[in-house]
Design a protein around this nucleic acid. Structure first.
Lengths: 196, 196
DNA sequence: GAAACTAACTAACAGTAGTTAGTTTTTTGA
DNA sequence: TCAAAAAACTAACTACTGTTAGTTAGTTTC
């Protein structure tokens, strides 16, 4: 039997199952079965099913926070800032796809107390992102737009990456970040003259 | 007791609950309770819980299909086509937010047979959308991009609308469609000169 | 006014959920 | 090699799941 960190194995297996079948649809017996053990044995290593979800969510949330803080520390140009924020975001999402997928989709299944704590952190993250947009506008390099709207549109295209990204696919995380940055900054129009 | 179409009331109530708590997390007793009745009574009006989900999904899928067909029938200019496709998509999503939200998030809980049927329809819808992008490229009005990538990015920002749209908010579906179209076509850059 | 229909009810079933208690086996470390 | 610790096991519990069966009260139809 494999020695190295059984707890990590449990997390890995659980998240892989939850990504496919969802949190509620993945039972402790499913997780145990995938590890050739019985469900109660899991409790020698973890404290509860919800804790699997909670620890995953805080881990990913922490990675996002670390990323945006770094961006704001290092860069000054708004375009560069935005590009790097996108890059970090994509890196977090693609680094552990099972975990990020579960984070993006299943956080709502946490009990309200924990869920609320997560919402606070998400709002803070979004505010930092929005700050970059505001800076770009005030410096005249971004179009004047509804910040909140632009932010939601940007984050949606970033987060959707968990739906289709495959580690063995033909785009690397770095390429995805490049393309997304270009798309977000320049859009689809060739001559930038669309008027509605 | 209210006469008019109990079945509709059940769908409406069920979808409202499922939007908040998710499909698996909403029990028949929850739905019944919200209607001041007992769970078994629901079965005088509907055939199963899964049928609630299935009928909702096919209804929304049908609305999307109708929209894209209309666009391709009426318009010729790729920019106009894309704009109208976006407009229809947003209209479908916002018209019955509970239903679209459940559609976007919970279709995976259908049994595989039904789920597969839905995937086929989604792929067809995406192909029609991608066709518009391809036309725009070949006519030289859209930048040459990875079609599949551009499509995913566009659809993600459209679908994310169900996360934040509120009927009593300060943007109408039509305004959302306008802003999204502009954002997708022109991006964020003021002078369209970003190079990575 | 009897028959049929509608829509609610109670009781209950078979299955599954997460988890605990208590016990046994396996591994570790001196 | 032997005691301690870690990690597995079996049995079981309580709670809840979607659903069926059988029944009943109220309304509509002929």
């Amino acid at each position: 039997m494999a020695r190295p960190n059984r707890k990590e194995e449990i997390f890995k297996t659980a998240l892989a199952l939850m990504r496919v079948h969802g949190y509620r649809n993945t039972s402790m017996r499913d997780i145990a079965g995938a590890l050739n053990m019985e469900a109660p044995s899991l409790y020698n290593h973890i404290s509860s099913k919800e804790d699997l979800l909670w620890q995953t969510c805080t881990r990913i949330a922490g990675a996002f926070e670390k990323g945006i803080a770094e961006v704001n520390d290092i860069y000054f140009n708004p375009q560069e800032k935005l590009g790097m924020a996108i890059r970090f975001h994509i890196e977090v999402l693609t680094h552990d796809l099972d975990a990020s997928y579960v984070f993006v989709h299943e956080w709502r299944h946490l009990q309200s107390e924990l869920r609320d704590a997560l919402i606070v952190r998400r709002d803070r993250y979004e505010a930092a992102f929005r700050e970059i947009l505001a800076q770009g506008e005030s410096e005249g390099v971004f179009v004047d737009s509804d910040n909140k709207f632009a932010l939601l549109t940007i984050l949606s295209s970033l987060n959707w990456v968990v739906e289709w990204y495959r580690p063995d696919g033909d785009m690397s995380p770095s390429q995805i970040a490049n393309q997304l940055t270009e798309f977000i900054l320049n859009g689809l129009n060739k001559h930038h003259n669309y008027v509605r």
